[in-house]
């Protein structure tokens, strides 16, 4: 057993772990962020993709020890703002003028453009592959702001989806790229917070 500290979405997280612990399990069990999913444990499906200081890694294929002291961003790190309370809707109707994000007390700006595009393009069905898919897409589009559809396909070739046939995911990638080009300042690095006890 060994003490390991990793910064996850700006939070400093320390845990005493079995040396065999995967980064995936550290994120899920020590930091308690279960949005990063275990789909195969052999670095094939991409459901566990996270960012380690700007690089995408499949967290099932990395030991937590290997990223000790470094900074990791997971799906939960993309939309921290959304965690504010949901406004309760009472008697005023929105039928016929449907605006789901607004109705949820959220704002389009609370979500990353990739998340917004996935919602609008119906790029997720069961949603299990979505966190990994979104992390990969975000990372790719930050470095490649003007991709073709084939570029987007290649970018997500390491992420499996069994539901969508990928068509709407590629649509979402193109839509997100456009949004990100028009709002170059959408990266909001989260401030570091005091360490939690884990």
């Amino acid at each position: 057993m060994q003490d390991v500290t990793i910064t996850i979405n700006g939070d400093i997280v320390t845990g005493t772990i079995d040396e065999r612990t995967l980064l995936l399990d550290f994120i899920r069990d020590v930091a308690g962020k279960t949005g990063t999913h275990n789909g195969c444990l052999e670095a094939r499906c991409g459901c566990c993709s996270v960012e380690v200081e700007g690089d995408i890694v499949k967290s099932c294929n990395v030991l937590a020890l290997q990223v000790a002291g470094r900074s990791v961003t997971t799906i939960e790190g993309l939309s921290k703002e959304r965690l504010r309370p949901v406004e309760h809707v009472t008697s005023q109707s929105l039928a016929g003028m449907y605006a789901p994000l607004e109705a949820m007390g959220a704002d389009v700006n609370d979500l990353h453009p990739v998340q917004v595009a996935f919602h609008q393009c119906h790029a997720l069905q069961c949603g299990f592959c979505t966190p990994g898919m979104v992390m990969v897409m975000k990372n790719y589009l930050e470095e490649n702001p003007e991709p073709t559809r084939d570029d987007v396909r290649t970018a997500i070739a390491g992420n499996l989806c069994r539901c969508t046939g990928y068509q709407h995911i590629v649509d979402a990638g193109m839509m997100a790229a456009e949004t990100m080009r028009s709002q170059p300042d959408n990266s909001r690095p989260a401030p570091a917070r005091p360490a939690h006890d884990h």
């Binding site: 990063t36 929105l94 003028m97 449907y98 959220a106 998340q115 919602h119 119906h122 997720l124 949603g127």
Partner: peptide, 28 residues
């Protein structure tokens, strides 16, 4: 809203399910 609201059946209403799945709060 006044008047009669438009019908939703037949429209590509974005899904209710999405937010939890997109933000990692859904519990599998």
């Amino acid at each position: 809203a006044s008047g009669v609201a438009a019908k939703l059946v037949g429209q590509s209403v974005p899904r209710k399910e999405d937010l939890a799945l997109l933000t990692g709060t859904a519990r599998f």
